[in-house]
Design a protein around this nucleic acid. Structure first.
Lengths: 192, 192
DNA sequence: TAAAAACGTTCACTTAAGTTAAGAAAAACG
DNA sequence: CGTTTTTCTTAACTTAAGTGAACGTTTTTA
């Protein structure tokens, strides 16, 4: 299972066996059952997550309604706002599936960075990449209709459509579940 | 005019007179006329922008239509994607107003970082803050309707509504200019 | 495993945004 | 300074999403 992690890291930096062992010895792998809430609205936390297996979801509750804004699957990393600006979280994070996560916090990161300076290099590269990806996602969302967004998702993350409940997916696309059903029927009709 | 810059920097770190002079001597202030295109689609660039005065805009051209995704005004910073991942830009950047900008590139930044290590501290703080802000903007956009977005903008950036053409604003809100006109009329009606 | 809850789809109706077009107002330009 | 271009608004019509409700299916869970 750790191979997943080291495969991911190798995209940015190369690690010696010693370094790998040091990381493993941190004992930061945790598994959670489907439905587990990792972070609640209003809570503070110092933890960041890296998904090794499974799927986690970020959602708000606005007027009693869930609004899903993000799904994180294998090899995705999530650092909640509250970690960065030390304020109560505005949203919930929960497991869509049974998931194996890597959980890190600032203390642990500085410790690793001190031992292995190149780790800091990786973090910088990774966060720059993340910023760009996030910006591109935002732009894509803004510049397309719900139907286009759905078709895009079908291309880019086809797995999500299978593994995530439709009503969460609808919310993620910015529409109601009924509209997603209709939209899908419309697309099927066009094809034929 | 530089006071604007140093006032901004003082939110993150404190600078000596020597350090301020070193920054000024870099000669990185540039002014541009309204309508100037700073970056075109398909171009590569190494430059980042910091707005001291004025307003710049990011937009795509999709099916011959402008899609505005961001406005940057006083004390906002913009690092285009192409700078980070060294690929051709997917969008345009142009000046909505006559603008005074600070233009920096990676070479200059490493130079300054070497001379003044605390500058690096500021950059990290600043980019973490930016990431959070961007994420929050995205979430807000996703979880609200065009009308709510407009009302939000009215609260948070009332100046934008005055200084930016309506059709660019409409695009920024994810709707057509005609819909923005109608939406505003609807809001006025509700008030009375 | 039986009852309850959650989920997905369909339908009819409502509301809001897209589209096309026209005309008035403002800005840009020679 | 007048002309041209761009911008903004309004209107009528079309299209798609929101809403409320019904109903069958799947999943929970007691």
């Amino acid at each position: 299972m750790q191979d997943l992690l080291f495969g991911f890291i190798s995209k940015y930096i190369s690690l010696t066996e010693d370094e790998k062992n040091a990381i493993v010895s941190l004992d930061i792998f945790r598994s959670f059952k489907k439905g587990t809430t990792l972070l609640g609205e209003g809570q503070k936390s110092k933890d960041s997550y890296f998904v090794l297996k499974g799927c986690i979801r970020v959602y708000y509750i606005i007027d009693g309604e869930e609004k899903t804004t993000a799904f994180y699957t294998e090899m995705d990393a999530l650092t909640p706002h509250c970690v960065i600006n030390n304020t109560p979280s505005g949203y919930f994070i929960s497991c869509v599936e049974n998931s194996l996560l890597l959980i890190s916090n600032a203390d642990m990161e500085t410790e690793v960075n001190n031992k292995f300076p190149k780790f800091d290099t990786m973090c910088k590269l990774f966060s720059a990449e993340l910023l760009v990806k996030q910006q591109m996602d935002f732009d894509e969302f803004k510049t397309s209709s719900p139907e286009q967004r759905y078709l895009n998702l079908l291309q880019k993350r086809p797995d999500l459509i299978q593994r995530v409940p439709q009503h969460q997916l609808a919310s993620y696309l910015g529409i109601k579940p009924q509209s997603l059903s209709r939209l899908r029927a419309r697309i099927l009709e066009k094809k034929s």
